[in-house]
Simulated assay, not measured.
Amino acid sequence: MSTAAHTNGFPEGYFVIRSAATGRIWDVSSDSKDDGTEIILWPEKDTSLVDGRRNKSAENQVFFIDTSGALCSRDSGHAVDIEGDKLVLRHRRPVISPYPNSYSHPPAKFVFSKESGGEIQIQFEFDPSYPPPSAAPSEAWKEKTFLLTAIPKRKPKGKMLSSLFGGSHSSTADDLAKSGIDLADNEILDEDLGEEGEVDDSPDTGRDIRMLAITDKKKRDKHLLEKTKMRRTWQIIKLRNSDARTGKFFS
Results as ranks from 00 to 15, higher is better:
residue 2 S to P: 11
residue 6 H to D: 01
residue 11 P to K: 09
residue 12 E to W: 04
residue 12 E to F: 00
residue 17 I to Q: 09
residue 17 I to D: 03
residue 18 R to I: 07
residue 18 R to P: 01
residue 21 A to D: 01
residue 24 R to A: 05
residue 25 I to T: 13
residue 26 W to L: 15
residue 27 D to A: 04
residue 30 S to Y: 06
residue 30 S to G: 02
residue 34 D to A: 08
residue 35 D to A: 03
residue 38 E to D: 04
residue 39 I to N: 00
residue 42 W to P: 00
residue 43 P to G: 09
residue 43 P to Y: 11
residue 48 S to R: 12
residue 48 S to D: 08
residue 50 V to K: 15
residue 51 D to Q: 05
residue 52 G to Q: 08
residue 53 R to A: 09
residue 55 N to E: 11
residue 55 N to M: 08
residue 56 K to F: 08
residue 56 K to Q: 07
residue 56 K to H: 11
residue 59 E to S: 10
residue 61 Q to D: 01
residue 62 V to K: 07
residue 62 V to G: 00
residue 65 I to Y: 05
residue 65 I to Q: 12
residue 69 G to D: 02
residue 70 A to Q: 14
residue 71 L to G: 02
residue 75 D to I: 00
residue 75 D to T: 00
residue 77 G to H: 06
residue 79 A to R: 14
residue 80 V to S: 01
residue 80 V to F: 02
residue 81 D to H: 03
residue 83 E to F: 07
residue 88 V to I: 15
residue 88 V to E: 02
residue 90 R to Y: 04
residue 93 R to N: 00
residue 94 P to F: 06
residue 95 V to C: 05
residue 95 V to S: 09
residue 96 I to W: 00
residue 96 I to C: 01
residue 99 Y to R: 09
residue 103 Y to Q: 03
residue 109 K to W: 06
residue 115 E to I: 03
residue 115 E to G: 10
residue 117 G to K: 10
residue 118 G to E: 05
residue 122 I to Q: 05
residue 122 I to A: 07
residue 123 Q to S: 05
residue 124 F to K: 09
residue 126 F to N: 13
residue 126 F to Q: 05
residue 129 S to W: 02
residue 130 Y to C: 04
residue 131 P to I: 02
residue 132 P to D: 02
residue 135 A to C: 10
residue 136 A to R: 15
residue 140 A to M: 07
residue 141 W to H: 03
residue 142 K to H: 04
residue 143 E to G: 11
residue 144 K to H: 09
residue 145 T to A: 08
residue 148 L to D: 05
residue 151 I to S: 04
residue 152 P to R: 07
residue 152 P to T: 10
residue 155 K to H: 09
residue 156 P to F: 05
residue 156 P to V: 01
residue 158 G to I: 01
residue 160 M to T: 06
residue 160 M to P: 02
residue 161 L to W: 14
residue 166 G to Y: 11
residue 172 T to D: 06
residue 172 T to Y: 12
residue 179 S to R: 11
residue 181 I to D: 00
residue 182 D to Q: 07
residue 183 L to R: 11
residue 187 E to T: 08
residue 190 D to N: 12
residue 190 D to L: 09
residue 191 E to I: 13
residue 194 G to I: 14
residue 198 E to G: 04
residue 198 E to V: 01
residue 199 V to I: 14
residue 201 D to V: 11
residue 202 S to G: 05
residue 206 G to I: 05
residue 207 R to Q: 01
residue 207 R to W: 02
residue 213 A to E: 14
residue 218 K to R: 14
residue 221 D to W: 13
residue 226 E to V: 10
residue 226 E to W: 11
residue 226 E to F: 10
residue 228 T to K: 12
residue 230 M to K: 15
residue 232 R to A: 13
residue 233 T to S: 12
residue 238 K to L: 02
residue 239 L to M: 12
residue 240 R to G: 02
residue 240 R to Y: 11
residue 242 S to R: 15
residue 244 A to C: 14
residue 245 R to S: 15
residue 247 G to V: 15
residue 248 K to Y: 13
